[in-house]
Simulated assay, not measured.
Amino acid sequence: MAKHLIVTQDSDGSSDEVCSWFYRYGVSFKRLNLDSYKIIDRNNDLYSDYFNFDNIDISIPGEKKVNDENFTEKFTSIWYRRPSANLDNMVIDETESGLSEFLLHKIRSNQKSELKELYSYIFNSIQGSVILGNRLETRANKLEILSIASKLGICIPRTKVISTKRQILEFQKEVNNSLITKSIFEPIAAMDDDLKQRHMSYTNELTDSILDKIPNYFSPSLVQEKIEKDFEIRTFIMGEKYYSMAIFSQNNEKTAVDFRRYDLEKPSRNIPFALPEELTVKIKKLLKIIGFNTGSIDIIKGKDGKYYFLEINSVGQFGMVSRPCNYNIEYHIYKYLTRDEEKTS
């Protein structure tokens, strides 16, 4: 059995880069992609270290085998990079089913529920001496995290969840400032059926023109005071290591409210940054409470000199921090998982 397990997705480029370090040093590992249920040709060198749940043999009680890998045994390390399965790719073959669309929908829904139960059972049995990430909690409740952060003395923007236009106008007077709105859950990311246009939801300022179009009543929405910023900070956390990057997004009107509105012609200036020690201590307390030992955190350095915590993503991208700042985070993840393990082949 391989000593190291990487639970991720086929489409995650950061996982590819970390795997390249395992190959470079000849350290044995297995990679489990949870967004693909295709049969893997294990005679193909490209997939020799990959496997998925296409061949399961479980005895209850007893061993849990997947493609002859015994999940009852203990791994040296496990990296839960992206442990959420895309179950849409794991559905029954419909081509010759002869079933109605209604019944197919019900069967697919039930199959997804059964696979989730199966994954939970298998993952709950996996043990590792070194674990990076969380097999069960792949995301944090944004509202709960803001509440915990505030209680720990971490500054957050004044925040409300509201559902009427009247409440927006009252909140605007209360803060005597502009407001922004963002998703309570995850931002929308969708591609048209013809794969020609991608749709994304961003953080947006509630300007007068937008307020004029808002109905009197709407679905509960997250609204915050707009913080006038010096710059934004993206921090990637790996255990006790903090890798931070300052993003001077406010210098460009396109990225001023949300740096994810990338301007490829005039990209934001990014430089390495060190968080204040007092803030780092409080963030460590926050992570301990929510049970995370890795993730990406977004922070604003306000013009008032304060640091405003925005949110944390337990599986957030870190390549955008690694490359501009020359941190080589992918290599450090490899070292964290292997603990300077000697070459095995």
Rank of each mutant, 00 (worst) to 15 (best):
S100T: 14
G239H: 04
L279I: 08
I154F: 13
G316Q: 06
V18N: 00
E73Q: 09
N33F: 13
D192Q: 13
K254Q: 15
R323G: 00
D230F: 05
V175W: 05
N134P: 00
S209F: 08
L169P: 14
S147I: 02
C155V: 04
A190Q: 08
S268L: 02
H105S: 13
K303P: 08
D45K: 15
N252A: 00
L104V: 09
K266V: 15
A246I: 06
N55A: 06
S249W: 01
K301F: 14
G316D: 03
N43Y: 15
E265P: 08
K160G: 04
K182I: 10
R323L: 04
S120G: 01
N313P: 07
I289P: 00
F236R: 02
S11N: 07
I299G: 03
M90I: 11
F29S: 02
R166H: 14
I122D: 02
T72G: 06
N134I: 03
A274T: 14
D12R: 11
S48F: 15
G239N: 03
E225V: 03
D194C: 06
T159S: 12
Y119G: 12
I40M: 06
K241L: 07
A149Y: 06
N89K: 10
S201V: 12
N251Y: 10
Y262C: 11
F171D: 00
M245W: 00
F218E: 05
I58H: 06
R42S: 12
K74M: 05
S113Q: 13
D304K: 07
N70I: 14
F75C: 10
I227W: 11
